[in-house]
Amino acid sequence: MKLRGKGIACFFYGMGNTGKPNPASAYVELMQDGSANIFCGVADIGQGSSTVMTQIAAQELGIPFEMVTMTSADTGVTPEAGVTSACRQTFISGNAVRLAAKDAKEQLFAEAAKILSAGTEKLAAQNGYIYVENYPERKTTVGEVVAKLYKAGKVVIGRASFNPPIVPLDDETGQGVPYGVYTYGTMVSEVEVDTETGQVNVLKITAAQDAGKAINPLNVEGQIEGGIAIGLGFCLSEEIFLEKGLIKNPNFNEYLLPTALDMPDIDPIIVECPEPIGPFGANGVGEPSNVPVAASILNAIADAVGCRVKELPCTAERLFNVLQQGGN
């Protein structure tokens, strides 16, 4: 018999190392043609931090995305940004890059204010131009200002370091402020269970995550979907067989991560509840989409068949055995 069910699960997830300082830093260099180099130690491991940092710098500087180049994770060139972990890079390194860009921009505005005869607080930058707010015709370009400063013997370099606001946890009670900001999410999984075999087929997953502000919506969706794949494997198929500490299946033939055929349709939903201390309201999104996957699938299975496996992975065999015992 094939039975269907739906399960729900939720998460909240803090950005950064728990209750510990974990700063990031960045430099921004502006060139006379109005382009910019960012230097930041953040390691892009595929999640897209270099793209996000480039977007943040371009937005803050008011120059086109294509004019910004990111150099990342080269200790001979880039300042430290901490490890790519704990969902921290968009929030922490993103803030460092934004603040470094702001530092550079303030140097520009100080000069531009003289050129445009306006207070720096009246200035804005967009698409490579610096202009007086409400008077877009009173403008100059980023490149011209950089060039002018250069002729005066000044190179425009912005720099910044950012550390999330935390309070270390008390050893005896665990009380404190573990993280500066949080992301939140909810997931519903829909499954079909073959009750004769215990085989679970995940049909659909609907997942929403609060990105604060999605710096790059396509990338946010990619993080949600990728996290779901890792969670699905964790739940249903991935198992290391240990024999007195030795991994007996150190290969992809017997350690089974999901293939394209194992993954369900995914409906990713981005929620944007601005984070006041995030760069442009953003918080991190990379890690936690895999938090509720197994839980929502297990709840869906329980909804379908009335009993649950309490031991992962929930292989067909484990579920079959629970079903045979008449549930729990």
Binding site: Y182, Y184, M187, C273
Partner: peptide, 12 residues
Amino acid sequence: DGVGFMETFERV
């Protein structure tokens, strides 16, 4: 601020 949990919940 920035507690978006209930919004993610209701939308899903």
